[in-house]
Simulated scan of single mutants.
Amino acid sequence: MSEYQDAQDGRGENEKERADRQWQELIQEIRVAQTGVQILFGFLLTVAFTPLFHELPQTDKTIYIVTIVLGALATGALIGPVAFHRVVSGRRIKPAAVAWASRLTFVGLILLLATCTSALFLVLRVATHNALVPWLVAAVVAWYVACWFGLPLWARIRYTSEK
């Protein structure tokens, strides 16, 4: 990377410094998502051991199984960057590690979205038996998508430009 490009980024960072900063920022973001997915996943794991679980219709049990699998996948993807870093630490590939960890985090967020959607659908379905449940879940999913992806993409397009 040229000195001109380093000066243009507004921070005066070289590639290694940028990778270090990006790694720290990514780890802070992952901490928030990991906490949420771990609490949700832990709660979901206990549901199968409640007396009412065995009285659920097979459809609800199937939704539960899908939810558990999605939660496990989300947990793996959101913890993955930590393991990735540990395995490649000291190999001088931090920019590549940041890129891969970022991808895993994005996949984890998609899986977390799916887990939350499935869990919400199951709980509302069991709690209300109401035909409005799919519409309520769709509204919440639309909110998640707007907050997690829509607004950031809008800001990215609106406030950044290609150099």
Rank of each mutant, 00 (worst) to 15 (best):
L26W: 04
V88R: 14
P152G: 07
C147M: 14
G71D: 05
T62G: 01
P57Q: 13
L73I: 14
G108D: 12
E162I: 13
M1L: 13
K16Y: 03
E162F: 13
V141H: 00
A119F: 03
T62S: 10
G10P: 07
A33D: 10
Q5R: 14
L40H: 07
G80N: 03
T105G: 07
I68P: 03
T50A: 09
A97V: 09
A99G: 00
V32I: 15
I79W: 13
D6Q: 15
Q38E: 12
G36A: 12
K163L: 12
I93S: 09
R91L: 15
A97L: 04
I39E: 10
T35A: 15
V133H: 02
A101D: 01
R156G: 13
E29G: 08
A99F: 06
C116I: 01
V47P: 07
R103F: 05
L111E: 08
L151S: 02
Q24C: 01
I93L: 14
Y159H: 15
E162V: 14
D20I: 14
T62K: 03
A7T: 05
L109R: 11
G150Y: 08
I93C: 11
T50Y: 02
V87F: 14
T59Q: 13
G12D: 06
Q38A: 12
L124C: 03
A33W: 07
A155T: 09
N14V: 04
P51G: 12
A74Q: 03
G12R: 07
F106L: 15
V145W: 05
G36K: 07
S161L: 06
E55T: 15
G90T: 11
L151H: 04
G42L: 10
A7R: 14
T35Q: 06
T59Y: 11
T128I: 00
A119E: 04
N130A: 08
F41K: 01
W100C: 01
T50R: 11
T117W: 04
A74K: 04
M1H: 13
E15R: 13
R18H: 08
Q34E: 15
G150F: 07
R86I: 06
T62H: 06
A74C: 07
G76Y: 02
Q28P: 00
A97D: 05
A155N: 13
E162N: 13
L113V: 04
G80P: 04
A155W: 11
I110T: 09
T59V: 14
R91N: 08
T59C: 00
T50E: 14
R91K: 15
Q24N: 10
R103C: 04
C116D: 00
G90C: 11
V66G: 06
V141W: 00
V82L: 12
V137Q: 03
S118F: 02
Q58K: 05
G76K: 05
V145P: 00
P152T: 08
A7F: 03
L151K: 11
A83H: 00
A96G: 03
P134F: 06
D60H: 09
D20W: 02
Q58R: 09
A101K: 02
G108Y: 08
K16L: 10
V47D: 01
V47R: 10
T46Y: 05
L113A: 08
T35I: 15
G76R: 06
W100Q: 02
F41E: 03
L26S: 11
V87N: 05
R86C: 02
Q28G: 03
Q38I: 09
D60R: 07
K61M: 12
F41C: 08
W100P: 00
F43G: 15
L73A: 14
A83S: 11
A99N: 06
P51A: 13
V66S: 07
T46V: 08
